[in-house]
Measured scan of single mutants.
Amino acid sequence: SEEELEEFAKEVLRRGITIIVNGIRITEVEIFVKVLREILEKR
């Protein structure tokens, strides 16, 4: 749901943790923004 997305976004921003994806360091915020864009483009 959109509320869950908002909560996830807030949690990500609070933690600001960097994770490893395919050997490249990407912040969770960047991943969230990318996923959010993909979701919005599909609408």
Rank of each mutant, 00 (worst) to 15 (best):
E6G: 06
E11F: 00
R25E: 11
E6D: 05
I20A: 05
V29M: 07
S1K: 09
E7L: 05
V33A: 01
I39A: 07
R14P: 01
E38V: 05
L36E: 03
V29E: 05
V33W: 03
S1V: 12
I24Q: 10
R43S: 10
S1Y: 15
E11S: 06
I17L: 09
V29Q: 03
E6A: 11
E4H: 12
R43H: 13
V33L: 12
K10P: 00
R43V: 14
E4T: 14
R37H: 09
V12F: 03
S1T: 12
R43W: 15
S1L: 14
S1F: 15
R43G: 09
F32R: 04
E30D: 13
E3Q: 12
E4R: 14
N22C: 12
V21W: 09
E30L: 09
G16T: 04
V21E: 01
I20P: 00
E6I: 15
E30C: 09
N22P: 03
R25D: 11
E4I: 13
G16D: 05
L13A: 02
I31F: 10
E41Q: 13
I26P: 04
G16Q: 07
R14Q: 10
I31L: 07
V12H: 02
L13M: 09
L40F: 10
E30I: 07
L36N: 00
E28L: 13
V33M: 11
I20G: 01
I39V: 04
L40I: 10
G16K: 06
S1A: 13
V21C: 14
E3H: 14
T27N: 09
E7H: 09
E30M: 09
R14Y: 01
E3T: 13
I24D: 05
V35R: 01
I39L: 14
E11W: 02
I17C: 15
R37M: 13
I24A: 06
T18D: 08
V35C: 08
G23W: 12
V21F: 09
V35Y: 09
E3W: 14
K34D: 09
F8M: 05
G16F: 15
R14G: 13
S1M: 15
T18N: 10
E3F: 15
E11T: 03
V21D: 00
L5C: 15
I17D: 07
K42T: 10
E30N: 09
F8Q: 01
I26D: 04
N22M: 06
L13V: 06
K42Y: 03
I31W: 12
E7F: 07
F8E: 02
E30K: 07
N22V: 07
R37L: 14
T27F: 08
G23Y: 08
E38W: 05
E2K: 13
I17W: 06
K42H: 11
K42R: 12
E38H: 04
E7K: 11
E3I: 12
R14A: 14
G23H: 07
A9G: 03
T18G: 07
K42I: 11
I39W: 14
R15K: 12
L13N: 01
I17M: 07
E28T: 14
F32H: 02
V29N: 03
L36K: 00
R15L: 13
R37N: 05
F8A: 04
L13R: 01
I19W: 00
G16W: 14
V21H: 11
G23K: 03
E2I: 15
G16E: 06
I31P: 05
R15G: 09
V12C: 09
V35W: 07
I19V: 10
I24N: 06
T27S: 13
V35M: 11
K42N: 10
T18R: 10
F32G: 00
I26K: 02
E3G: 13
E6R: 15
I26E: 03
